[in-house]
Amino acid sequence: MDTAPGADLAARLTQTAAAARVPASMTALDPMRPRPFRIERWQRDLSDTFTIDLAPLEGSPLTFRPGQFNMLYIHGAGEVPISISGDPERPERLIHTTRAVGQVTNAMKALRVGDVIGVRGPFGTPWPVEAADGHDVVIVAGGIGLAPLRPLIHAVLARRGRLGNVVLLYGARTPEDILYRKQVSAWRGRFDMTVHVTVDRATGRWSGPVGMVTKLIARGGFDARDTAAYVCGPEIMMRHVAQALLDRGVAAERLFLSMERNMKCAIGFCGHCQWGPDFVCKDGPVFRYDRVATRLAQSEV
């Protein structure tokens, strides 16, 4: 049979990629090659945080699962790992919420509708939504940690009928730092979910709770022994939240965290994001608590 010279190599690379669990949405040849996406919408969320909606210049939309991330390449600035924060059932709009903290994210903040950026992904392990089936769900977010949890909240609400109580606990720095404020209000207005928001510092006319997000856990609204919990925020916050959930009776194997490390290649080759025996980019960012508990308590891992 007559085949093109590269076909055999491509087929072998595909097999290798499959073995390495490179996402099926990408061909084996291009996990390192960004696809061009156009900014369709640019919105400022907080003083240093913004959300962009992307659409591919060509080809099919990028499908993803909640909790996964993309590598976003800004021409002339570099590449950064950013979690996807849109609805997984509406992949035609690829949504990323970013905090401008470094050179690349600041360059990204300066972009506007119509600008083109490169996208590689999606990468990483997803939030296991199905682990919640038949249980109550507790989602605990700290600060900008709400962004990687938003696709999960969409997915949870999409399978609402299979779940018990659904509780979202969110801790922000101040009332002005509440991310996705309109959407959080809308969730709060639903009859089928409980939403509590607390702030570390009350400002203005805030009349809601003030204090650590861990305190919201004590307010209950879920049956701890029959609960799946998903946590994202600064590492210290996640440690304390995880402990508070465990103390209450949540099972360690139904408790999930999303870790943040310095992801560069996103496919487990470069080693920048190594965390103990794992690479956060491909073995994470979502980890089951009981598998990382000992590492979580150690520094410099």
Binding site: D48, R99, V101, G142, G143, I144, G171, A172, R173, D177, D200, R201, G211, M212, T214, K215, G233, P234, I236, M237, H240
Partner: peptide
């Protein structure tokens, strides 16, 4: 005390 210490850390502050 634990909550106050964590609040003092200002965990969600920009890096």
């Amino acid at each position: 005390l634990r909550a106050a210490r964590l609040q003092m850390l200002d965990l969600y502050a920009p890096p």
